[in-house]
C-alpha cells in the first residue's frame, strides 16, 4: 500500500500549525452502553454493550465489524454527536456528562467526522465556498489559519471548485471537500465512518492516502470505522473487533490480524482474504 502514498498525494502538504502532542488521551470511553427502543414493539435493543475504548493523541484506532454491529452508534455516542447512552466518556479529559452546553459547543470542533456518503455530508443548498464561510463564522479563531484556496489545495482540489454546489461534484471531489471541512477545524480527532465505501475503487486509494497524509502532518488522532480489513490494516495502529454491540477482541493490528484469539475475528479474517495476505508496508 505504500506506493499509493507516493502517487496518490504529493508531499507538499504544508506542516500543520498545531502540535497536539500531550499526555491526555483524546478520547476515553468506559463501559459505554447505548440502547435503542424500537418504536413499533417497544423492546430495547442494545446497540453498544459495555464497550471501553482509549485513543491517545495522534493514535490511529479502528473499529471493525459487520453491518449492524454497533460501530457507527459507538462512534457517534463516543463523540457526543449521537444518542449519548450510559457510561463515562471523556473527550480531551472533559467528561461529556459533566460539561455544560457552551463547553460542549467549544469542545465539539476538536472532533470532526468524515462520513460514508460524501453528498449526504454537504448541505445541497450551499456552495463549497459558502459552506466554508459558515464554518469560519462558527469558529473564527480556530479557522483563521488558512484561506479557502490553500485549504482546497491541501486536499488536492482546484480553487475553482469553490463555487460549485454538491450535486456538481463527483463522489471523490465531494469526499475531499468533506475532508477539507474537517481539516479546517484543526481537530484533535478525526472520525472516519466508512470514508471510502461510497466511492469508486480508483478514488478509494486516493482518499485513504489523503487521510494518511493528513494524519502524518497534523498529528490528529483517527478513529476509523470500517468493515474493510485491508484498509484498516494499512491505516491503523490498534483495532477493535465488534460483534453484536460488544468488543470481542482488541489489540495492535499486527497482533490481531496475525494471531487472532477470538473465533469471530478468525471468521472475519477468513471472509476477507485481503487482510491476511497483504503485508503491512
Amino acid at each position: 500500500m505504500s506506493e499509493v502514498t507516493e502517487t496518490g498525494v504529493p508531499g507538499d502538504l504544508a506542516r500543520h500549525p498545531r502540535t497536539p502532542e500531550s499526555d491526555t488521551p483524546v478520547l476515553e470511553v468506559d463501559d459505554l452502553v447505548v440502547e435503542h427502543r424500537d418504536g413499533g414493539t417497544g423492546t430495547l435493543f442494545r446497540a453498544v454493550d459495555q464497550v471501553s475504548l482509549r485513543i491517545a493523541a495522534g493514535e490511529s484506532v479502528a473499529v471493525v465489524g459487520e453491518s449492524g454491529s454497533g460501530k457507527t452508534t459507538l462512534a457517534m455516542a463516543a463523540t457526543g454527536l449521537g444518542p449519548r447512552g450510559r457510561g463515562d466518556i471523556r473527550l480531551l479529559g472533559h467528561s461529556l456528562s459533566a460539561v455544560s452546553r457552551t463547553q460542549l459547543r467549544r469542545l465539539r470542533p476538536e472532533v470532526q467526522v468524515v462520513f460514508q456518503d460524501p453528498h449526504g455530508s454537504l448541505d445541497p443548498r450551499q456552495s463549497v465556498r459558502s459552506g466554508l464561510r459558515e464554518l469560519r463564522a462558527l469558529q473564527p479563531e480556530r479557522t483563521s489559519w488558512i484561506d479557502d484556496a490553500d485549504l482546497l489545495g491541501r486536499v488536492r482540489l482546484a480553487p475553482d471548485l469553490l463555487d460549485r454546489y454538491p450535486h456538481q461534484l463527483s463522489g471523490g471531489q465531494a469526499q475531499r471537500v468533506c475532508i477539507a471541512r474537517a481539516l479546517l477545524m484543526r481537530p484533535r480527532l478525526i472520525v472516519a465512518d466508512e470514508p471510502t465505501s461510497g466511492l469508486d475503487v480508483s478514488v478509494q486509494a486516493d482518499v485513504l492516502a489523503l487521510l494518511r497524509q493528513i494524519r502524518a502532518t497534523t498529528g490528529a488522532a483517527l478513529l476509523m470505522i470500517s468493515h474493510d480489513l485491508a484498509v484498516v490494516r494499512s491505516l491503523c495502529d490498534v483495532v477493535h473487533v465488534m460483534y453484536r454491540g460488544r468488543v470481542v477482541e482488541a489489540g495492535p493490528c499486527d497482533r490481531v490480524f496475525g494471531t487472532p484469539e477470538n473465533d469471530y475475528t478468525r471468521e472475519l479474517l477468513a471472509a476477507m482474504p485481503g487482510a491476511r495476505w497483504r503485508s503491512r508496508r
Binding site: 454527536l81 449521537g82 459547543r105 467526522v113 449526504g120 455530508s121 462558527l138
Partner: peptide
C-alpha cells in the same frame, strides 16, 4: 442527513441548523 451531524460537530446551534439549513 449527515451534514446535520457535521454542522453539529462544527459547533452550530440548534436554531441555526433548523432555520439556516
Amino acid at each position: 442527513r449527515q451534514f446535520v451531524v457535521g454542522l453539529r460537530a462544527a459547533g452550530a446551534s440548534e436554531p441555526r441548523i433548523v432555520f439556516r439549513h
